[in-house]
Design a protein around this nucleic acid. Structure first.
Lengths: 80, 80, 80, 80
DNA sequence: ATTGCGGTTTTTGCCC
DNA sequence: GGGCAAAAACCGCAAT
């Protein structure tokens, strides 16, 4: 077996190819997500508003409250 | 003067260097902005809330209203 | 059909859930990739060197594109 | 001192205005860069070819770093 | 342990 | 409107 500095070159190649394959899969999913956004847009929805609610749904209630409170505080301070 | 295809190589070089210099300046300003955010953080402020209000201040009143209305609509639809 | 503020709640919810599911899958793949890096590290490989190699393997094709583009530009500049 | 929700309004406003001013300056530079591209185009140069060249000039140093890092890794792998 | 930093990825804005 | 470049959020790493 080909070894370099006590390290298997074949092993390295295998690891790299696994990563590259997974990245390929990942790209496929990203493309699927893009497709859903296109579909949403075609149905009259607003993509960035959807992104915003998805972000909100990911956050815990307390985080959401804290963030909204902070923003509200700054807005009041600045008369926005 | 060195010309290639009726185009001055010196002129091209000059244009490129001007762009590179401007990009350098721009990077300097970006660093200054980062510094202000650090200062803000050290004074107890929240950087992302500051970013949010700056974004709001950049928007027109009507855009702000439209965006907030849309998000609010989606939130109600999803019981968020 | 259930509507809130002129939008179909069910349609919106469905789109959002599809996106969230896809993002979940995507995150799973990202985690798999991370796992391979951990495995590589445990096998004595250096993660950032692997990243560099993968980047080079990816870049080689885009670099070729860039180079071809540049060559084409020079050809135009030289009226060849 | 004017405070709203436990924060110093004046301090916040000052920080925000400094950031906004810097962003204004930054935008000015970005516009200058755009102008140089327009000038280049008017002089018969191809903007995207110039971008490519600038990217190459920038990349050459980071590429060199990456390459050196990789070489170092290989040296370690080979116990050289 | 906590926090700043560098790099990666995602999002936004822009030009074509 | 679709692709591309810049900005911003996110993450793991390291250093203290």
């Amino acid at each position: 077996m080909t070894e370099v500095g006590g390290i298997s070159v074949d092993r390295l190649r295998s690891l790299i190819e696994r990563i590259e394959n997974l990245e390929e899969e990942k790209k496929g999913i990203s493309d699927d997500i893009k497709d859903v956004y296109v579909e949403a847009k075609n149905a009259g929805f607003d993509a960035s508003a959807i992104r915003a609610v998805i972000k909100l749904r990911k956050m815990s209630q307390s985080d959401r409250d804290a963030q909204e409170f902070l923003l509200e505080t700054y807005r009041k301070a600045l008369d926005l």
